[in-house]
Amino acid sequence: MDTEKFIERAQAVAARVSRAADEEAVAHLIAEDQTRFGAENVGVVRAACGIAETGTCVVITDDEETRLKTMLPEVSVIVLRADDIVPNLADTAAFLRERQSGDRISYTSFITGPSRTADIERVSAIGVHGPLDLHIILLEG
């Protein structure tokens, strides 16, 4: 149920969602994007978890390179295991707390759809400073 809700909510904010049965299917989907948009225009990262309520991917981006992969390329691909989807935003509290325990330094990104703005006449526009396209690959099974 969380998976279906996740898909509905992610699509509602203009994310593309694909389902993959295994790693091989994931690799295939990524290769497709790279062919279509050019490998240099596609950034691929893995999500730590997802949030069904909001269609969000939670990505550990402590390291600068991973972070930039979700920001600079025009196409952002995030691979998310369906098993890692939690129902609600509030359910991420324990995860966030664990990430910041002791004196650990962290940078956690909650990503929901491609970058967007409504700053000109409240007209919705996709792709401002971040990706124009967010492709979520749901790894099931």
Partner: peptide, 16 residues
């Protein structure tokens, strides 16, 4: 919006 496109949690001075 249910959530904005990006919600970022910065916990300290990371690698740069």
């Amino acid at each position: 919006q249910r959530i904005t496109a990006y919600t970022t949690f910065i916990g300290g001075a990371g690698p740069c």
